Simulated scan of single mutants.
Amino acid sequence: MRAAIYWAPRLDDPLHRLGSAWLGRDAETGATLAQPALPGLDIAEITREARGYGLHATVKPPFRLATSWAALRQDALALALRTAPFALPPLQVAEHHGFLALLETERSPALQAFADACVAGLDAHRLPPDAAEIARRRPERMTDRQRANLHRWGYHYVFEEWWFHVTLSRRLTAEEMAVVRPAVTAHLGEAPGLERRVTELCLFTQSGPGAPFLLAERLPLLG
């Protein structure tokens, strides 16, 4: 089993419904959803990996538990209780490292602080990656800072290397991008740019290798 700390839109947020339909799965219920058609392309294939993770933005990357679910939940709840809700900047569909994602339209110090607190504050519950897991990350391709993050925190994109993103596709060719980007932009409509606040810490779980991630619990921010 693996756990992760993610941001996910609230159930009453139109982005939850539209984004889940785009990926073809509701990570809250596990239900399979009908996806919109893409002219000349297989949307199920293009969204396969993102669908497995569910509609989310990573806050603390997936990790195997060194303690127990109960212990992780207790500390996550304590973190949520001392964290005040905060505004999330409007989001927009953008190309990022070759794939499509929802990105912030401006950087949010409060969001960065929240992610940093989750990475560091819950790290006692993370089982360090073994040598094979580290090798799969291709540390030889990383910067010195990223390699240090990988060995210390189990993932290279944390702290100043982290960015908020909601993945919507696999890496795309230029030809695919020309079809998929306008399609997902039209499908999501005005939902990404709506005003919203981060009011929850979302605990996700994966039952085993290759299994889909599911939203196990939403812990309200009450600081």
Rank of each mutant, 00 (worst) to 15 (best):
R82P: 02
A84M: 08
P85R: 02
P89T: 12
L91F: 13
V93N: 13
F99S: 00
L102E: 11
L103I: 03
E106N: 06
R107S: 14
S108C: 04
Q112H: 10
A113W: 12
F114L: 07
A117N: 03
A117W: 07
A117F: 06
C118S: 05
C118L: 05
C118Y: 04
D123T: 03
A124R: 14
H125P: 13
R126A: 02
R126T: 00
R126D: 00
L127W: 06
D130H: 09
A132Q: 14
E133C: 01
P139D: 07
E140F: 13
E140G: 13
R141F: 00
R141M: 00
D144I: 08
R145E: 12
R147C: 04
L150P: 10
L150T: 05
R152F: 02
G154Q: 04
Y155K: 00
Y157N: 08
Y157L: 03
V158L: 05
E160F: 00
W162A: 01
W163C: 06
W163P: 01
W163E: 11
L168F: 11
R170E: 15
R171H: 09
L172C: 06
L172K: 03
A174H: 07
E175Y: 08
E175T: 09
E176W: 12
M177W: 04
M177E: 11
A178Y: 02
V179H: 11
V180H: 13
R181P: 14
P182F: 12
A183Q: 01
A183V: 10
T185L: 02
G189I: 01
A191C: 14
A191G: 09
P192S: 08
G193H: 04
G193S: 05
L194P: 14
R197C: 01
L201A: 13
Q206Y: 08
P209A: 12
G210K: 12
P212G: 11
P212W: 03
P212L: 10
F213N: 02
F213I: 03
